[in-house]
Write a protein that binds this DNA or RNA. Structure first.
Length: 289
DNA sequence: CTGCGGTCCTGAAGGC
DNA sequence: TGCCTTCAGGACCGCA
């Protein structure tokens, strides 16, 4: 599921691929996914790509933008037309590499929206159709979602976390995943950060000590940076891939996520799993207190 | 205001 | 083998 590092990866790839180009047409294959009028964005130039929490923002000329939320199974795949191809049916390449998209044809059964852009096509695929793409005015972007501070921003301080944690007795993991308190942290990175900080996911937020809060803040930043470094995580049952069609590799570095029954990398104790707020929750009973 | 549970959707996995 | 049920999961909505 695309969380902050996955959306950041998508952002960085698309920045290189489509900024400066014009949207020539939009094919909406699943009406509920695309909210707004395609004709309001057709003909506009892509001026920049940004990320806010788990949302991708495609800034367009004029006062418009496309806001994309991938939810559980959304993907963006950029297929570039090969300008050098002399073949009648132009070969497609992905950012210069003639590799097939995950071994399948595009559009796929799960393709919900196709953007025809100068030089290629951008496919929005979404198996479970929880995601959306909205046409918004630039000045309405902030109203789209009430999001807490970005973990890489300077307001994301130990003091800030202390303040929000002190107000609730909810399990700390649920607070980390609350987008109105911290933008961009989802299930994978909440699990990983709590292991890294040595804190049990079920601990009431208000019971954390100052030293633990400081460690947790650093752990959140550390695991998110790692996630970005490895191009996000394409774990089993997860639909995330980079817009190049390649998977991320952070799943190879998971400390606890989806490792129930396996040995803790630090102490060898068997990793446990429970359901917390309806989400798979993983921890090491020895390393986390 | 907070917190909880239902909802959307599909494919995989489990039960008999 | 095959049908039916259950489950995962981000964010929103309605209700207590």
């Amino acid at each position: 599921m695309p969380e902050l590092p996955e959306v950041e990866t998508i952002k960085r790839v698309l920045e290189k691929a489509i900024v400066g180009k014009t949207i020539k047409n939009i094919e909406v294959r699943q009406a509920k996914i695309f909210q707004g009028e395609p004709r309001q964005v057709i003909g506009r130039k892509i001026e920049g790509i940004e990320r806010r929490g788990k949302m991708l923002i495609i800034k367009l000329s004029g006062d418009k933008a496309l806001a994309v939320h991938f939810k559980l199974t959304g993907q963006m795949v950029w297929i570039e037309e090969n300008p050098k191809s002399k073949i009648q049916n132009p070969k497609f390449v992905i950012l210069g590499h003639p590799i097939p998209f995950a071994g399948t044809e595009l559009p796929a059964k799960t393709t919900r929206v196709i953007f025809e852009i100068d030089g290629g096509k951008l496919f929005y695929n979404d198996l479970r159709q929880f995601g959306w793409i909205k046409v918004v005015k630039l000045d309405q972007l902030d109203q789209l979602d009430q999001l807490g501070p970005e973990p890489f921003d300077k307001e994301f301080t130990t003091e800030y976390l202390g303040r929000i944690f002190s107000r609730t007795s909810k399990a700390i993991k649920l607070v980390l995943m609350d987008q109105t308190k911290i933008a961009g942290v989802g299930n994978i990175y909440a699990n990983e950060a709590l292991f890294e900080a040595g804190i049990l996911p079920t601990r009431p937020a208000k019971k954390l000590g100052n030293e633990e809060i400081k460690k947790l803040r650093e752990a959140i930043i550390k695991v998110l940076e790692e996630g970005i470094k490895y191009g996000g995580s394409s774990a089993k049952d997860e639909a995330y891939i980079k817009p190049t069609g390649e998977p991320g590799s952070y799943q190879q570095h998971f400390r606890v996520y989806q490792r129930a029954g396996e040995k803790c990398r630090k102490c060898g104790t068997i990793i446990k799993r429970i359901n917390l707020g309806g989400r798979g929750t993983f921890w090491c009973p020895k390393c986390q207190k």
